[in-house]
Design a protein around this nucleic acid. Structure first.
Length: 577
RNA sequence: GCGCUCUUAGCUCAGUUGGAUAGAGCAUCGGUUUUCUAAACCGAGGGUCGAAGGUUCGAAUCCUUCAGAGCGCGCCA
């Protein structure tokens, strides 16, 4: 039920008819023609740019062409109240009230599907997000990307696409060795009373490792922890298990559940890296060579070495990238290429990666590798989530790696709650740095968009409560004939934009559009609500039962959209606040 | 030095894939509660869309150059 699509199709049909009669010349494709939401000052419901797009080809000025088209559009459409041509050549359509009555009736009868793009071909997506190293709890830095990934998944799922949410576990490499060592020292600390080494910068100092150590000791009484080399393999597995358990816990408090966890170590052990490099070799994407030091930096320590390189410059990268370390081990990039081959083999239509800003420099090389492996462009879509600036007491709160000086996801959720964390983290485009102001986020006022939107839902719920009706129950209507006034139509117009919002969020993978839309809808609703103070006609509960019933339908439409949006964002919509 | 992202009202930001007189919130000032939730609403002021060129019927949006901010840039993941 996208009225913009509906009218676009209608107009295109009219164009084809006109061109058959020889009254109009059309281009091969009707791509540039759109129906849009007109700016509010025009008092019109839909506008189209047809006349401007076709004017050149038809050698007519847009205004004259528009006048011809207006006649054709107006004909046989009883729902149009007014259709006019405005300055550069826009055609503005204003509907009769009955259009909106019909509109409400239609979306009430199909409330489950309202907003979903039913014309679009359904795709199968793989989305990889979070993928934080399994060495400790998630902190704020991971949080935004995690929520963005989750909500993008929700949007795609809402639009009936298939989505697999995946977490890549980096359980291979030096950091894991250091991590295991750190756990080992914590174990020795507990069992043999040896102090944890304080001078080793490779080790992980966080207190949470004490818990890991204790848990491992408690559930593995048989292991003798005297000799590190002997317990190393087993301890690595146990340590990663502990870390993953904690990470999954953290994700859970944010309301995030991945479908799959893929282990880097398994990929390496299955020789998948060798296989993919073999493939690249055969297709001449790798060679032995040297990487030059970056210009303008202090490169005294730079040592040029010959090593196995991937030709990412062929795909627009700055330099070719190393696949193998000097000791023969694979680089992180190499196993990630193998991972992406693994993804490709599973036949998804699109792969999506959500990356933090600090990994943005990595995009070129990994998308290059996907292009090389799949021989197609645009298969991998990378979204970057910019930094979150924490603000406390009006000052930026700096996190440092020093022990205890960073804020974890747990801290955040404990302080401001899951809902506020999710909503605020999404409240800006992911391309933009985000201020996360603790004082603001817990404030219960208009400063806080979450409460503002929830409050509009709660107000609707309160009307239903007064009438002893259940907001969640379906409403059945027939011969709906309520006559909406301009104040109500303002809201219905916003409602009509919901499918457009979903479409844009889904096509561009821009989840912030949902909170933005919900805020606008809530704002219109609050305005309307307050009209009831001066004007009893604007109240929902009327002395005439029919009017009350009809208005409940209107409220139901609004609450359905708010609820859908809140579900996508993954926050609650309480009926009482 | 190079790459990515950003620059829109005093502040924080939207801007629907190039459209019409550029929109919200906060802050400031002034109003609204015997009424379905004032966690709300109404009104006022506030702009050279970082700068300069270019592309065209039309640019905050696309291209080029420049300036500023953030992030990143050897076999760490």
């Amino acid at each position: 039920m996208n009225i913009f699509d509906q009218y676009l199709n209608k107009i295109k049909k009219i164009l084809l008819d006109l061109s058959k009669n020889g009254d109009l010349i059309l281009p091969d494709k009707l791509d540039g023609i759109t129906t849009e939401i007109p700016p509010s000052k025009f008092n019109s419901d839909i506008s189209t740019n047809v006349a401007m797009v076709l004017s050149k080809l038809n050698k007519k000025n847009p205004n004259d062409l528009a006048i011809i088209l207006v006649e054709a559009i107006k004909k046989n459409d009883p729902l149009i109240e007014d259709i006019s041509v405005v300055k550069p050549g826009f055609i503005n359509i204003k509907f009769k009230t009955v259009f909106w009555t019909n509109f409400v009736e239609k979306i009430i009868k199909n409330s489950k599907s309202f907003g979903i793009n039913t014309n679009e071909k359904k795709k199968n997506y793989l989305i990889e997000f979070v993928s934080a190293n399994p060495t400790g709890p998630l902190h704020v830095g991971h949080c935004r990307g995690a929520i963005i990934g989750d909500v993008i998944s929700n949007i795609l799922l809402f639009n009936n696409h298939k989505v697999t949410k995946e977490y890549y576990v980096n359980d291979y490499g030096n950091q894991i060795i250091n991590f295991t060592k750190s756990v080992y020292f914590r174990i020795r600390e507990i069992i043999f009373n040896e102090p944890f080494p304080s001078n080793n910068e490779d080790l992980y100092p966080g207190d949470y490792l004490i818990n890991f150590a204790q848990n491992i000791i408690n559930s593995n009484k048989k292991i003798d922890f005297k000799d590190f080399d002997k317990v190393f393999d087993e301890l690595t597995v146990l340590s990663i298990e502990e870390a993953l358990k904690l990470i999954k816990d953290n994700l859970n408090t944010l309301g995030i559940n991945h479908d799959k966890f893929i282990s880097e170590k398994k990929l390496v052990n299955n020789q998948e890296v060798e296989k993919v490099i073999d493939f690249l070799h055969k297709n001449n994407f790798v060679y032995k060579g040297k990487i030059k030091a970056p210009a303008g930096e202090d490169n005294n320590k730079w040592i040029e070495r010959e090593q196995l390189l991937f030709r990412s410059t062929d795909f627009g990268d700055d330099k070719d990238r190393a696949l193998q370390k000097s000791d023969g081990a694979w680089t992180y990039f190499a196993s990630d290429v193998a991972y992406h081959k693994n993804k490709l083999d599973r036949k998804f239509d699109y792969l999506i990666n959500i990356l933090g800003a600090d990994h943005a420099g990595y995009i070129k090389r990994i998308s290059s590798s996907v292009e090389a492996l799949s021989n197609t462009k645009g298969k991998l879509i990378c979204k970057v989530s910019q930094l979150v600036k924490l603000i406390k007491d009006k000052k930026p709160f700096k996190m440092s790696k020093r022990k205890g000086d960073y804020i974890t996801v747990d801290d955040l959720v404990n302080e401001v709650g899951k809902d506020a964390t999710r909503f605020i983290m999404l409240n800006r485009s992911s391309d933009v740095e985000l201020d996360f102001d603790f004082d603001n986020v817990i404030e219960k006022s208009k400063d806080n968009p979450l409460y503002y939107v929830q409050y509009s839902y709660a107000r609707i719920a309160s009307v239903f409560r007064h009438l002893n009706k259940d907001l969640k129950a379906d409403i059945k209507i027939n011969n709906y004939d309520f006559h909406y006034t301009n104040d109500e139509i303002k809201i219905l117009k916003k409602i009509s934009e919901w499918p457009e919002c979903i479409d844009a969020a889904s096509n561009k993978l821009e989840p912030h559009r949902i909170p933005t839309y919900l805020f606008e809808l809530a704002s219109l609703f609050h305005s309307y609500w307050n009209l009831g103070k001066d004007n009893p006609d604007k109240r929902f509960i009327s002395e005439q039962k029919k009017i009350t019933d009809d208005k409940l339908v209107f409220l139901k439409v609004i609450s359905n959209v708010i609820k859908s949006g809140m579900d996508i964002v993954g926050v609650s919509a309480p009926e009482k606040m």
